[in-house]
Nucleic acid binder design. Sequence first.
DNA 1: AGACTAATTATAACAATTATAAAGTAATAA
DNA 2: TTATTACTTTATAATTGTTATAATTAGTCT
Lengths: 143, 143
Amino acid sequence: MSSAKINAAIDNLKEAGVRITPQRHAILEHLIQSMSHPTADEIYKALEGKFPNMSVATVYNNLRVFKEAGLVKELTYGDSSSRFDCVTTDHYHIICDSCGKIVDFHYPGLDEVESLAESVTGFDVGRHRMEIYGVCPDCKRKH
Amino acid sequence: MSSAKINAAIDNLKEAGVRITPQRHAILEHLIQSMSHPTADEIYKALEGKFPNMSVATVYNNLRVFKEAGLVKELTYGDSSSRFDCVTTDHYHIICDSCGKIVDFHYPGLDEVESLAESVTGFDVGRHRMEIYGVCPDCKRKH
DNA sequence: AGACTAATTATAACAATTATAAAGTAATAA
DNA sequence: TTATTACTTTATAATTGTTATAATTAGTCT
């Protein structure tokens, strides 16, 4: 059950002093339950059945709120629109060049890379991102 | 002198059957000589002295041509507009969270990560991207 | 309840990018 | 050389993702 995750996320938000509105609940729920990495527009469309009057701005506003609370990460790949990902545990993404599918991929953080970068460039390194690209099994099968 | 690089790039394009127009030459030259990683608009503005009539579309078109020829890479970070980078040797980027500066950072490719991802996910892995984020020396000094 | 703050909605604005059509330029063939 | 063709550039309009604004609604606090 992912309702435990949802509750944990909501507790997290409440502690940060964020009000849990029905829209926020629904957006969060959708993000956690859909194993995909939806765009703002996809979330908007997915919820317009439940919330016929909800505005796109609400989706964007709340994604920003969740981001600021550290619950959600914004993924900016080459395509036009950002995708949003619930941060649960540390993981990277592998992306299919053919169909665009994004799959989680767990790997121990690249700490050595960070420390080398720090010494070479003189930056104070805070974090990094990495994505891997290839062709997913489904697309391989379809030749 | 980077004129050698420019000539090499031009030969590359010619072999691929791409016509070298004055605009293309100038865009390429600017990309190679400016050590920065300019946006399409920055390139456009930088060249409007030389080419007062050049259209933004020309910049975008030709960046796409260069990309397809494998000479240029598009970098999509969180900010609104893409940046473009001449592919010379393999390198990663380290980005300042405070001022946005992008610095090249050479590191041996992360081949083990790619092969692990391949075995774990079943993808055929082609490539990967990585960026490191932190605070640059200049911004550190400014506190 | 009344006052205050925050959230949502509807809509407009914006900015990056792409598409279109017309005009120009170079390459090729007769 | 001229005609034909394909490719480029230009100017402009259209699209699209995202953000800003103002008005309305809903929640919170004393």
